[in-house]
Design a protein around this nucleic acid. Structure first.
Lengths: 217, 217
DNA sequence: GTCTGTGAAGCTCTTCACAGCG
DNA sequence: CGCTGTGAAGAGCTTCACAGAC
């Protein structure tokens, strides 16, 4: 999928773990830990030491054989890889309960994602300012977006006309989409889509519980 | 992982697609479609026909060689597998913005998941009734839960003391957890855990955009 | 001809196990 | 001794391609 300068490949599964590594490493850094061994870090994040070493080796080697991994250096590298070393403007579509929750969530800002602009179709919300962000009408998407230039958009709106919104976002330069709406959409060429389907998660758990097998860990 | 009566295995990846299949099939059923071919359904859900056939074959055969798959029969089977043919009580921990969004989300009830009881620690919220559900103080978890007997809990609260909440939920009979809190928890034996980390999703997209490669679809 | 179900191949990700270093 | 980085093996998932049914 994605490859690094050194010619090695970073698998999609590895990428999904990178965020977790960075998060734990930041906690360690705050505690004053400067170096850590793979088996220690692996235990903290919940993966095997072998997998952790393989993951980290896929984008460079930080391991000192006697001291373990350099915590700070890894945070820097991970942040650069994950694009959280700069502030990225994000557009939020839909200002219902979920939109409000997303806007209120501090985790985004901490990691460099700044929700810069909001869209909705409800006249109750359009024109208002939520936590410092103005809410525009969805129909003005094309004229408003250039002022904020978000590369990522979060969809937390109703299901109807969703694909059309995606297409319009794509034409306005949005390259990544997080979709909370339980409706299948097709990303435009070059766009990256990530679905978050909470019902699907519930059903997955429900299936696993019903299938019993008594594992789960 | 989980195996079916007929001895075949249903992979975890297949399970994650089952919800999507069912959802699309229900839409088709509402439109009056009684049978559908794998390539048609595959296109609607966004997988390859081969994968769809393999998935469906893993828990029984519904395909009629000339007519395709029986829509209604598949919905029934999928619902039984996913445990959405009966109503399942769910506990919600945390009544902030996210908790409110989850409570307001109609998709759960439609699929048989009923948020039956809410917990929080905020005295502003404890004792109040939200959308028909009483909010109890978290300290009363053990005395309140038996009245509702949820098998699944949704965590949408603060990070501190989270593991302790998980342990207590486990002791009170909760078997599955959906965790929205960006904090690593360890499920108790026999418990199944599903994390929903929105920041991680953002970072994944951010990585893929930065890694460029111009794919994404 | 078109369809499903499936063996077999291909691909990806994880784990093992050890060389090399300190 | 214990550590990292990695070839090689293993496990799991997807795709190919076709037999068999209509």
């Amino acid at each position: 999928m994605a490859s690094q300068k050194n010619g090695k490949k970073i698998s999609i599964q590895t990428v999904e773990r990178l965020s977790i590594y960075r998060k734990i490493l930041e906690e360690l850094h705050d505690e004053g830990v400067t170096h850590i061994y793979s088996h220690q870090l692996a235990k903290l994040v919940g993966v095997t030491p072998a997998q952790l070493r393989r993951d980290l080796a896929s984008f460079g080697s930080f391991g000192n054989i006697s001291k373990g991994y350099n915590v700070y250096q890894m945070i820097l590298t991970l942040s650069r890889l994950l694009g959280t070393d700069t502030i990225q403007p994000v557009a939020l579509v839909g200002m219902g309960n979920l939109g409000r929750a997303i806007l209120a969530y501090r985790g985004f800002e901490e990691r460099g994602f700044h929700i810069a602009v909001i869209f909705d179709v409800d006249s109750e919300k359009v024109g208002r300012v939520f936590a410092g962000r103005r809410c525009f009408h969805l129909k003005d998407l094309e004229t408003v977006l250039p002022d904020y230039q978000p590369t990522i958009a979060i969809l937390a709106c109703g299901a109807q006309g969703l694909q059309n919104i995606v297409d319009r976002l794509g034409k306005s330069g949005v390259r990544g989409i997080i979709n909370f709406v339980p409706k299948k959409i097709t990303p435009v060429r070059g766009m990256y889509l990530e679905d978050v389907d909470i019902s699907a998660k519930m059903e997955k758990i429900s299936f696993l519980l019903r299938a019993k097998s008594g594992e789960g860990n």
